[in-house]
Design a protein around this nucleic acid. Sequence first.
DNA 1: TGCATTTATATCGCACACGATATAATATTC
DNA 2: GAATATTATATCGTGTGCGATATAAATGCA
Lengths: 150, 150
Amino acid sequence: MNSQPATKNLLKLDVQLCFALYSTLLGINKVYRKELQALNITYPQYLVLLVLWEGDQLNVSEICERLFLETTTLTPLLKRLEVRGLIKRQRSASDERQVIVTLTEEGQALRATAEKIPACVAGNMNCSFEEIGALRDQLVALRTNLFKNA
Amino acid sequence: MNSQPATKNLLKLDVQLCFALYSTLLGINKVYRKELQALNITYPQYLVLLVLWEGDQLNVSEICERLFLETTTLTPLLKRLEVRGLIKRQRSASDERQVIVTLTEEGQALRATAEKIPACVAGNMNCSFEEIGALRDQLVALRTNLFKNA
DNA sequence: TGCATTTATATCGCACACGATATAATATTC
DNA sequence: GAATATTATATCGTGTGCGATATAAATGCA
């Protein structure tokens, strides 16, 4: 259909995909804060744990790449996770520049508690698995383009 | 199809819609930082201007509601926009509790420069207008659910 | 009218998030 | 093998983003 004229105001807030993304993430963070409060961790910390639960013994850069974050963000975050007792940070023996991140027993154990979170968050979304999967794939495609050009 | 067993690992990073959203927003911020550098403002500041360009003379709470942000976030941000010379903040005469936000001439003038930003960002997305619109609508629906329950 | 309650904004503390920069270890080049 | 370049992480400064709390103005109610 697209009955809108070409002069449609692109600066209108509610027209913008970027704001929809931005504000939806605020809502997601809100839900996660509530859920993660019991684990005493933040959402970005939870993401680091997701990465480590898939495979341990990663250096800082590898975690950065996986999460699309900068070292500047991760270094202090990892220190907090270490203080929290969930990970260990130790320099690599073969390359002293690298810091290898490993889960502690407590960090590994936390996985069991975290298992119930995805379903809980999905409950707050009122979405079917199909919708969630489709939306995720569209976003990943968008992300690929954004990081290609930026 | 959905050939995945019910015991599929929901904690896998790349399965999660939330991480897709989170990381896509990182990419969007990256693009906007580059574009907004010329205007010497940040993306959240840009969002406040979008709101004000649609209609001036709003108090802090009204801007909060529009952007899904807390006063705690907006008060210092608005002060920075005032220092930057783009807005004025003045207590309402009829209700001294309220702070009314108004665009300065410079703030109004900035709109002309900002007009070219949406097309530029869309270019970095490599998406058709139809795809963008559809994705936006899905996200808005998701956002509605998230803020309903949280 | 007087006092408790509500409302609007501000302050504080903490945790991201990143650009600019620093530092130390490794790799490269001659 | 010494000088240079690259790589991995860390430090610093600025700007969000929010929960807990403070404060002052307006409202409600006895």
